[in-house]
Design a protein around this nucleic acid. Sequence first.
RNA 1: GGGCGGUUAGCUCAGUUGGUUAGAGCGUCUCGCUUACACCGAGAAGGCCGCAGGUUCGAGUCCUGCACUGCCCACCA
Length: 956
Amino acid sequence: MTDNPKNELPKSYEPGAIEARWADEWVKEKLFSVATPAEGDTRPVFTLLLPPPNVTGRLHMGHMLNQTQMDIIVRWHRMRGFVTLWLPGTDHAGIATQMMVERQLASEHKRRTDLGREKFIERVWEWKKLYGGAIQDQMRRLGASVDWDREYFTMDENLSRAVREVFVRLYEQGLIYRGKYIVNWCPRCATAISDLEVKHEEVPGKLWEIRYPVVGTDEFITVATTRPETMLGDTAIAVNERDERYTHLHGKKVLLPLMNREIPIITDELAQPEFGTGAVKVTPAHDANDFVAGLRHNLPQIEVMDEHARMNQNAGPYAGLKREEARKRILADLREQGFLTGEKDYTLALGTCDRCGSVVEPRLSTQWFIKIQPLAARAIEVVEKDDIRFTPANYRQIYLNWMRNIHDWCISRQLWWGHQIPAWYCDCGEIIVAREAPSSCPKCGSSKLKQDPDVLDTWFSSGLLPFTALGWPEATRDLEVFYPTSLLITGFDILFFWVARMIMLGCWFMAPPEKPGLPGTDSDGRDARHPTSIEVEKQEVAVGERASRPFKAALSDEELRNSVPFRDVYIHALVRDADRQKMSKTKGNVLDPIQVIEKYGTDATRFTLAAMSSPGTDIAFNEKRTEGYRAFANKIWNAARFMFMNIERIDPGIRPGRTGVDARPHAGIAGFQTAVLEDRWILSRFNSVTKNVNGSLTAYRFDEAANAIYDFFWGELCDWYLELIKARLLPESETARGTCANLVALFEASLRLLHPVMPFITEEIWHAMYDGKPPLKSLALAEYPQADEAQIDRKAEAEMAILQDLIASVRNLRAELKVETKQRVPVEIFAEETAVRSLIEKNAGALERLANVEQVRFVTEPLASKSGARGTARFDLRLIYEQTIDVAAECVRLKKEMEKIEKGIAGGQRQLGNEQFLAKAPAQVVENLKKQQQELAVLHQKTQSKLNELGCGSDI
RNA sequence: GGGCGGUUAGCUCAGUUGGUUAGAGCGUCUCGCUUACACCGAGAAGGCCGCAGGUUCGAGUCCUGCACUGCCCACCA
């Protein structure tokens, strides 16, 4: 399995081939496929649904961040013994996919209508077959440990059946209705889109004032508008009833300029006296507010544009013009005829299509809607009751605010790619909503039925995934075991699109089944913009037939808690480029994760994303960081090489599991020998770090976890521990054997600790440690380290700190005195405390080796500064070396130090002299301060005597 | 119009429930190929923690205001 026997590891780590090999191996071995636990299986379960990428999509940095975080959490759970299911899949992505195929057709100078619906859909399936696998291949390279055996596609037959089931049930519950309303319409895509798919953009525009002649008088009434072209469809002028300027005109009519149509002046709250002239034109067919006002006053709805936003035959002389052109011409004509009386600059929030960027047109059309209030009520309740928790917590409020102001959801799309709406129309006017195609009309018996040509919003089907991907509507064992899922990790950009919908639909369909006889929905769930107008309903759908399936209105706490689609939601940040710019194709600053991976390796890229995942801010992806983490991988690699070299040299028989050290994956580092200070210390550190890493992962603090491991491995294990034990490894002896065994045990445990973040390099080294005959198929199946409090040794850590301090002091002094690197220098040490002295004595070898000194001698008196000595509160030291003391420079240094010390003392004095502080501060804080003050006092005295000794004046 | 976040070393960012001397990586400077690693080692320089008030024995951390910046939401013509 390992290409490189451990004694031939190359000098630097080359991730490419190694990562590719393991990525394949994991998939081939079906390492992450999970069997559904049987009844009676008591293991804890962890379930995570992959936010399904678009089937034709390619991996971007956002995906990689998302998947890295998920994989870390998933591997961590798996290693802790959870039955862990990470469920992958892809989304058919209605508009997005259809657009791509249309673009391809366009290059052949064809349109989808040239092919016809059936051929076009065939074409999309072909496209899917051709390009649909890209993202899965890319995911494998990331090492995403998903269960590929359970992969789904949102248009799979079973998922499509579930979609129809949901639609029919909602319809039967009276929660889906069809009607003619104003919707957001994209003239390029020629389809309705939901509120969420409209992006508002502030752009400079104009506010025009147009005067309409009042019939039978010589008066005019002036209105303000940002969209003069819609005036062709005006069916009224509204003024506010309490606006006295217009009282005398109530009930009169105006003549619509250009069209010469008489329209009434009505009074309505739509007109606000404070704004503009206080009079407003009413165009029910082209504005959402006007639409509602129109219903109130029974106004005609005159559409003047077609589905592509061209003026239609109702637009008289302007018919056939594009809306922009029509606006120009209308303004010109109005001006010429004296109706245009004003033009002001005005900033407007222009709605544009999320997909294609076209300016969205409010358009009157017949669509299907979900009456959302009853679902939203439940979705609010579960979050209020903390049955679903958000991380970071501030998303809870954002979610609730949105959910409390939610509008009915327009779910029909005038597209071909997607789940076709399961409604059939009969010539007799009957509408049949059914799970499968009906053969004849139940009312008139006709067999000439036509299915609704529209498809459902993509988010309708993806909103169901937490339960449909587990087999719903069948009562599967999977549903029983894996639902509710444990966690959802996703970006805030789809918080409303997807997360909110999953919560609504999950809580609706996974709650206990509806019971007959409970109240229906007719009294609640009204939407201001889509009023349940009786007139509209009568013409489209008969009320009585719909509410045949009442739902259970009130749920118990437990029923509610068990209905949620997931328990936790972790919202991650957006990945930006190194200059904090949003990555976009048009800006050309999109970083392709695969390219980054090829450059630095998957592990390094994953580590970068994890280390930068701190909550609250976006991630400015900086390749410099990745470069650094590639170096980290290389460091690990070389530490492993060091270990293997010693194993070979000392005892080729030493392997985990065969060493006397029990380093088998499930044994932890129980056999670790702790006779020597650095062993106790590193063991203590390992346990502290393990504790921190587990804690950080529990809180989804990927950055903390990654940094903790990094600092430990590099800063402590490599920089100190490995250096300290080198001396012990030198002679071939029992000591050397034991030391090597310790190293092996520690290394193995550290690999397990790091594995969720850097799965590839850890897997590679781990297998090499077992000579390709590991006790488990993969490190991914080994046990995750857990901290043992008993092994956290504060005394060892304190002693080690002194030793590190001492070594650093010598190094510092050497650098300052410019002692030749190779030259070993005798050193004199004064340590007042016997404990410190004996600690140094015991570790004199370490000092000599790491600081490159010799002949460590102890003296009984504090060392003179003139001799070039340095000191801390615990020790003085001096290098015996031909040295010229630059008295002036030393004085400057000492004075600077003195300043710091005095500042510290002054601050401490102030505090300790403050009775309030003594009374109110915790005892521990006071105690620490006192201790610190004692040390400062010692330092102060020492430094003062040095200053005196050198005769440093006060004026340096 | 409403809401949310950011502002800490040249750059990118950490900084736990307030605890006295604010950290890391990269970059910079000085040494060094010491038999794991130059993707390395050792050392150093570098911060009025956006501004102004307030609470507190004590504020980078809590409160208020302001400035700059980014984002989300919104049917006022």
